[in-house]
């Protein structure tokens, strides 16, 4: 029985293309990841763990987790609400709202940080009002949370909108005719349909929230042990010639990326899709 190739390209072309793809993946994705771990362990495990136990490092981890713990649920709630409104209803200004949700993706992170300084800084629009009440937003936790929330704003909504769009409103309509309440429809019909896409959106949102550098850098004030998030702490260490310590902290971020990828793959496996939530 003759074996028929489904591809028409000759063997050398295929080898070349596959080789090129592998080379790109190795150089651009694998090598940097390996470099992080190699650099981190250059001075041995002792220095590695020492850097992670350092007070400033622990405080950076805590701040990063806190910022993510506040901004991710906020954005999840918003994202689900926005996706629900935008896909299940038709109303005036809907297109505008869809574009507005994408704004944080379109804006440079530096600007995303600076706008908050302009609004809440001492000389900003609300600066005087806040100063009079001794409320600190910029160069403190609230500013970091706001900047993080702003840049990660679209992740959940963006993930859900195409998914819910493709699902249409048939099932909800059926539920309405059967007399279900709005809240019940959401919990029993809509939510089960979107749960994997939602989880994936939250995952991406969280990864970005913990890794954000630009916007947070602008509003942080870089106070060691107080307003440095993990990515900022990595930069500080690097600038202090503590390369091994910098990369040790960077491994935490790399680990976060790997865990994110692992969960994502697991979600895909569970749902049987090749890509959870297509863009």
């Amino acid at each position: 029985m003759s074996h028929r190739e489904i591809t028409t390209e000759s063997r050398p072309v295929r080898v070349l293309l596959i080789g090129a793809a592998c080379a790109v993946v190795t150089v651009f994705l694998l090598l940097p990841l390996i470099a992080v771990f190699v650099e981190a362990l250059r001075k041995g495990w002792e220095v590695f763990f020492e850097s992670l136990r350092d007070e400033a490092a622990l405080s950076a981890v805590k701040l990063t987790l806190t910022a993510a713990a506040i901004s991710v649920p906020m954005n999840t709630l918003f994202g689900v609400g926005a996706a629900w409104v935008l896909t299940k209803f038709r109303f005036r200004g809907r297109a505008l709202l869809v574009s507005l949700i994408d704004l944080p993706f379109a804006v440079s992170p530096v600007i995303a940080g600076l706008v908050w300084v302009l609004l809440f800084g001492s000389h900003g629009w609300f600066g005087e009002w806040l100063d009079a009440r001794d409320i600190r937003i910029i160069f403190a936790l609230p500013g970091i949370v706001i900047a993080t929330a702003f840049v990660t704003f679209p992740f959940v909504a963006r993930e859900l909108i195409p998914l819910m769009e493709s699902q249409g409103t048939d099932q909800e309509e059926a539920a309405v005719t059967l007399g279900a309440s709005g809240w019940r429809i959401f919990l029993r019909v809509t939510l089960p349909n979107i749960k994997w896409g939602l989880l994936y959106g939250i995952l991406l949102c969280n990864a970005r929230a913990m890794g954000e550098f630009g916007a947070v850098s602008v509003v942080s004030g870089h106070i060691r042990g107080e307003t440095n998030t993990l990515p900022l702490h990595v930069e500080v260490l690097y600038n202090e010639y503590q390369f091994s310590a910098a990369f040790a902290c960077a491994t935490l971020l790399a680990m976060l990326a790997l865990v994110t990828l692992g969960i994502k793959t697991a979600i895909e496996h569970l749902t049987g899709h090749t890509s959870a939530g297509k863009h």
């Binding site: 709630l77 299940k88 409103t169 309405v176 309440s181 709005g182 809240w183 019940r184």
Partner: peptide
């Protein structure tokens, strides 16, 4: 055919909005 916009008038929807608003505050 029932138009989905009827959902808009359901009292529970409105209450959900207020729950969201309170949570946001």
């Amino acid at each position: 055919m029932i138009h989905p916009t009827i959902l808009r008038f359901h009292p529970f929807r409105i209450r959900r909005h207020s729950i969201l608003a309170v949570f946001g505050m």
